[in-house]
Structures are given as structure tokens and as C-alpha cells.
């Protein structure tokens, strides 16, 4: 009965027989699957999963794992952002294992990189941090920075800081060292099975160590074409930056009042803070 080679148990399966020829009916799951991304109608082999469904899951998990462990390519990012000036720094987390177990280290700047951040007088700086998905940053960070800048003529923007093994709060230390009134941090969100390359953007007014999450604004799920597109994300982020600057705050006191955009999705941000 549990033998997967038992054709009797396979043939009665609603999911393993896409044509439904064995039962003379159309697969009722074909239409249901269009209603949700959930893995429904997978079929059964005994109590287990059909091999294809098993491998589909493993592929999604493998991609997510690879995204978590992929190395941040700061050189490639600098090239993608050129001619914008960039500076590469590291957090105090020496490697991925430390990064994953010690969120406190990912929020602090490596002391040997402090001298790289020269104090200036900037309206805003962008920080690109790998977070939990370097793949998301590689794919989306440079275009989102460029799209955002289109809406900010006349702003004094500091060098783009490329931070490896970085979490959201690392932007606070970077921002205060650079003398920035506003820091916009782009970070790879925690990969799910359906998306391994989702980018988040966190905006913090007057960054300084100790800022709480409630004092930031967040745009999540930047991931065209399924999630928010680069141009839309740039417009949203720029609107928030202009308003933050005008009102002198970010966080719960600054609601996103840009018109609703398609594809933004209601899913909350994966906290990588």
C-alpha cells in the first residue's frame, strides 16, 4: 500500500494524473491551483509526496539557501552604481555563521573601516547591505538607487556605502559618521520558498545608534515583476525621503501616502534588523 511503484495507488491520485485519463474526469485541481500559490493538489504516493513535487520543493529551498549564503559582491555593486562614488565597509560579523547567530555584530561597523567614512554634510546617503539575500541586492539595489535619485534633484547625496554582513541598524552608525540627515538602507530580505531575491528599503531620519524600528519607514518586497518594480520603489522611496526631510521625522509619524501601486503586496517585511 505504501509502495510508490504501486500503480493502483498512483492512479487514484487527483494530483499525479494531470490529464485525468484514468478516471475519465478533468483534474479538479487544475483550476484550484490558479487560486493560490499554496502547494495544493500535489497528489499522493501512499502517504508520501510524488517525486516531482518533492524535487520542486527541494529546488525552491535550495535557491533560498543559496541566496542566504551567497557572498556579497561589493566590487560588482560599485561597478553597477558607477559613476556614483561608493565606499565598501564591513560589519563586525566576520562571516555568515556569525552574522546569522549574532545580530548585534551585524549592526556595528568593523572598527578598522571607521576611517573610510569621512564626515560630510549630506541631505541623505544610501547604504546597500547584503542582509539575508545578496542575490536581492545584486539584482535590485543599483536600479532602485538610480530611480530614487531621479526624483531628488538638488539633493546633496553622499557616497553609496556598500556594507557586507550588514543589518538594518548598521545604517545608523554609517549615517552619523558620514554626517547624513537621512539614511536610506537597501537590504536583502529573508528568502522564502517563492522568492529568494526580495529587497527591502529602510528610511531613517537623523540616524544614530539606538534608533528603534518604529522610527523607520520600510518598503518591502521590491522584486519585479511579481513584487514592487524598480521605478515604483524609487518613486515611493523618494516621496518618503522628501516628506521625511520636510517634516523632520521617519517612522510611525510618517505614513506612506503615495498612491497605491500594483504589485506591492501586503506581505510584511522580513525583519533582518
Amino acid at each position: 500500500m505504501t509502495d510508490p511503484a504501486d500503480t493502483a495507488s498512483r492512479a487514484v491520485d487527483p494530483g499525479t494524473d494531470p490529464g485525468g485519463t484514468d478516471t475519465g474526469t478533468v483534474d479538479p485541481w487544475a483550476r484550484m491551483r490558479g487560486l493560490t500559490r499554496a502547494r495544493i493538489g500535489l497528489g499522493r504516493c501512499g502517504d508520501g509526496l510524488p517525486t516531482r513535487a518533492l524535487l520542486d520543493f527541494q529546488l525552491a529551498h535550495a535557491r533560498a539557501r543559496d541566496a542566504v549564503h551567497a557572498e556579497f559582491d561589493a566590487v560588482g555593486m560599485a561597478a553597477a552604481l558607477a559613476p556614483l562614488p561608493t565606499v565598501a565597509v564591513r560589519s563586525r560579523a566576520p562571516d555568515r555563521a556569525a552574522y546569522l547567530q549574532r545580530p548585534d555584530l551585524g549592526r556595528l561597523l568593523d572598527p578598522s573601516d571607521e576611517a573610510l567614512l569621512e564626515p560630510g554634510d549630506w541631505d541623505a546617503v544610501f547604504v546597500v547591505a547584503d542582509g539575508l539575500s545578496a542575490a536581492a541586492v545584486h539584482a535590485h539595489a543599483a536600479p532602485v538607487v538610480r530611480e530614487t535619485l531621479k526624483h531628488l534633484p538638488g539633493w546633496r547625496i553622499g557616497p553609496v556605502v556598500l556594507a557586507s554582513q550588514g543589518r538594518v541598524a548598521l545604517g545608523d552608525e554609517i549615517g552619523i559618521r558620514l554626517g547624513a540627515r537621512l539614511v536610506a538602507l537597501l537590504v536583502g530580505e529573508r528568502p522564502g520558498l517563492s522568492a529568494a531575491d526580495s529587497l527591502g528599503a529602510y528610511l531613517t531620519w537623523e540616524p544614530r545608534p539606538g534608533r528603534r524600528d518604529a522610527e523607520r519607514n520600510c518598503i518591502s518586497n521590491i522584486r519585479p515583476p511579481e513584487g514592487l518594480g524598480h521605478a515604483a520603489a524609487g518613486a515611493k522611496l523618494a516621496w518618503l525621503m522628501v516628506e521625511a526631510s520636510r517634516r523632520g521625522l521617519t517612522g510611525i509619524g510618517l505614513k506612506d501616502e503615495t498612491p497605491a501601486l500594483p504589485g506591492g503586496g501586503p506581505a510584511g517585511p522580513a525583519i533582518v534588523g
Binding site: 493560490t36 499554496a38 495544493i40 501512499g46 502517504d47 509526496l49 513535487a53 529551498h61
Partner: peptide, 24 residues
């Protein structure tokens, strides 16, 4: 959870198949 993949909470739990397996 269908196929062990929660598409809302973005984590992996146990599936309907897993429950069948354990009962069986």
C-alpha cells in the same frame, strides 16, 4: 500546511502528507 510551504508567513512547517505519514 499545503506542501509544508506557508505562502503567507514565508516559512516551512509540516504538510498534510506529513500528518498522513505520522498517523500511518
Amino acid at each position: 500546511v499545503p506542501g509544508a510551504d506557508d505562502v503567507m508567513l514565508q516559512y516551512q512547517s509540516t504538510s498534510f502528507h506529513d500528518a498522513l505519514y505520522l498517523r500511518g
